[in-house]
């Protein structure tokens, strides 16, 4: 899942990018509000980790701007100001969650997963589809009683597809979820990951829609002869 991190402290910014990467997120970092606006305008993010005290203004202003334009983008405020009244004003300004500095990396990852899950309208931490149980926290799954392990990118593709089972996602859409700005997009990686996923889940679990992209097959497709 691709996140935008708005944080001006270089050490923390690097730590968030690397640390959330370890939990299966793809993170892009910016240090100012201006850069954050530019990034949000040009790319598609699943969520934002937003610092409040930034060099060119308050993160709360960006939050207010986004909510005013009707954006439902999940936003977690990450800030040194974590008194009760700060948290209240942050949440009231439209934040989905609030975490005070310093924080635990695992807790941040868990809160982000929960935040994104709520965004998808799910309450359970485990996603189920067509006999597959997928656990974002451990990036693992179960199908027909068999335990499965996925690489970060495999898992990101699978999760993107499973969150909108009927929808077709194009190759560029999947690539955008896979790669941050610093990473170079390798050609045909998506195909390679889809291939590995089909090996683990069964050939028909992911359908190729010729010329458009990929989608998951529904339960109705199950009885079809392979």
């Amino acid at each position: 899942m691709r996140l935008l991190i708005v944080e001006d402290d270089p050490v923390l910014s690097d730590g968030l990018s690397v640390g959330l990467g370890l939990s299966g997120f793809t993170a892009d970092t910016v240090g100012t509000l201006a850069d954050a606006r530019a990034a949000l305008g040009s790319s598609d993010f699943a969520g934002v980790v937003l610092d409040i005290m930034l060099p060119d203004g308050s993160g709360l202003d960006l939050l207010a701007e986004l909510r005013k334009t009707g954006s439902r983008l999940p936003i977690l405020l990450l800030t040194a100001r974590d008194q009760v009244h700060d948290r209240i004003s942050g949440l009231d300004a439209g934040a989905d969650d609030y975490l005070g500095k310093p924080f635990d990396l695992q807790e941040l990852a868990a809160r982000l997963r929960a935040m994104l899950r709520r965004q998808e309208g799910r309450a359970s931490a485990v996603i189920e589809w067509n006999g597959l149980r997928l656990c974002p926290a451990t990036q693992s799954g179960q199908i027909r009683g068999k335990n499965l392990r996925f690489s970060r990118r495999e898992f990101t593709i699978l999760q993107s597809l499973i969150e909108h089972p009927g929808r077709i996602l194009s190759k560029p859409q999947l690539e955008e979820r896979l790669y941050g700005w610093q990473e170079e997009v390798e050609s045909n990686t998506v195909e390679v990951h889809i291939h590995h996923l089909r090996n683990k889940l069964g050939r028909e679990f992911i359908q190729t829609v010729r010329g458009i992209g990929y989608r998951l097959s529904g339960p109705a497709d199950e009885g079809r002869p392979q």
Binding site: L12, G15, L78, A80, P102, L105
Partner: peptide, 18 residues
């Protein structure tokens, strides 16, 4: 001072956990 020191502390903790 308290707020400003929390940010570098958060950075240190995150990097230590990494």
């Amino acid at each position: 001072a308290a707020h400003e020191l929390k940010t570098p502390l958060a950075g240190l903790k995150t990097q230590a956990q990494i």
